[in-house]
């Protein structure tokens, strides 16, 4: 069922990118989508509920807002004349409480777009996410900020 929905969404995206919503083009998009979905090994799309869609949209909003904010903060840092003294880069281990692939991927992407942090790797046992930060004045505060902000939001969407 979710595959059918996914195929329809992919067909619409196809029509949007080619800029042509005529029936034959939608049909072509749908067949390409089905072909692509057949190539994927396992079912991955979770069932969709209205509540979840709402939360996903708020997550997307947060994503955009954080991107804008982080771009602005990084620019201010780059353009400040005494940049070197403000830099205190470090790679810290962030203890993960989300477990599934989708959640970790989303969290890693969001972390890359938050001000001053960039995800580097996930440990083998999936307990830690290694995060590179532009300035680490206080390691615990940074970990708490990520855990309270994005991680709770992501758990809300997926639970």
């Amino acid at each position: 069922m979710s595959r059918v929905a996914l195929a329809i969404v992919l067909a619409i995206i196809w029509a949007a990118i080619t800029g042509n919503f005529s029936a034959p083009n939608l049909l072509l998009g749908g067949s390409v989508a089905i072909l692509a979905l057949l190539l994927i090994r396992k079912e991955f799309a979770p069932p969709v509920y209205l509540q979840k869609i709402k939360r996903s949209i708020s997550l997307a909003g947060l994503f955009l807002y954080e991107l804008a904010l982080s771009a602005y903060r990084v620019s201010v840092l780059i353009l400040s004349p005494n940049m070197k003294s403000k830099l205190k880069p470090g790679i810290i281990a962030f203890p993960l409480s989300v477990t599934s692939d989708v959640e970790i991927t989303l969290l890693a992407n969001l972390i890359t777009l938050t001000p001053g942090t960039l995800s580097v790797d996930v440990s083998e046992d999936r307990k830690f996410l290694y995060v590179h930060a532009l300035s680490v004045p206080n390691k615990k505060a940074l970990i708490k900020e990520i855990a309270d902000g994005f991680e709770t939001k992501i758990i809300e969407v997926f639970k």
Partner: peptide, 24 residues
């Protein structure tokens, strides 16, 4: 960015000496 950072880290490119903590 994440892929490149991971590849560089695993290949052994060191961050600059300004870096304070490197738990990775």
């Amino acid at each position: 960015a994440h892929l490149l950072a991971r590849a560089a880290c695993l290949a052994g490119y060191k961050p600059s000496e300004l870096t304070e903590i490197n738990e990775y």
